[in-house]
């Protein structure tokens, strides 16, 4: 039975090695904040962090993961939606339907970790998630806001 380190807890996952991490998170760990959109790593709705890097969990079999690799989902990004990215998203009213937004937020948090002051080109390259409602311009503005620490200053 594979062991996974999810949001700081090591859990036994009762699933086949080939099961995508997305479905182990949603169905075994009960963490449904990570969404299914395409199943082929195209849309990014399933983005989580593995050791800090953004990963599309729908295409990552759990058998390829070790218990010492730290998986963080949207539920584990912060205890109370207080991550700078989440605060910027709230300040700018970014989500519409919201279904893609967990993946967007995880991708943005990872981007800011590697590039604390991203340019628009960095955002173009780092944010390849699909949003059908069309929140892209607010996503871009919120990433810049989070990078500037604007939310913290406002607070």
């Amino acid at each position: 039975m594979p062991k996974l380190n999810i949001n700081g807890r090591v859990v036994d996952v009762d699933a086949d090695d080939k099961t995508p991490l997305l479905w182990a998170l949603r169905e075994q760990a009960g963490l449904t904040g990570t969404k299914y959109g395409c199943g082929i790593a195209q849309c990014g709705a399933c983005t989580v962090h593995i050791d800090g890097a953004p990963v599309r969990s729908c295409a990552m079999p759990i058998g390829a993961l070790r218990a010492d690799q730290k998986i963080v989902t949207i539920e584990g990004l912060s205890p109370d939606a207080s991550h700078p990215v989440q605060k910027a998203w709230l300040a700018l009213d970014v989500p519409q339907c919201g279904y893609c937004q967990a993946g967007m937020i995880m991708a943005a948090a990872a981007l800011l970790k590697s590039k604390p002051r991203p340019t628009d080109a960095d955002i173009d390259a780092g944010m390849t998630n699909i949003c059908r409602c069309g929140t892209y311009n607010r996503v871009r503005a919120a990433i810049h806001l989070a990078a500037d620490g604007g939310v913290a200053r406002q607070g």
């Binding site: 963490l31 904040g33 990570t34 969404k35 990004l77 109370d80 709230l90 989500p95 919201g98």
Partner: peptide, 16 residues
């Protein structure tokens, strides 16, 4: 908005 930022928003696909 708030529940859409933390994964708490329950969509139809999330029902258990």
């Amino acid at each position: 908005t708030i529940d859409k930022l933390s994964g708490k928003q329950v969509y139809g696909a999330d029902i258990r």
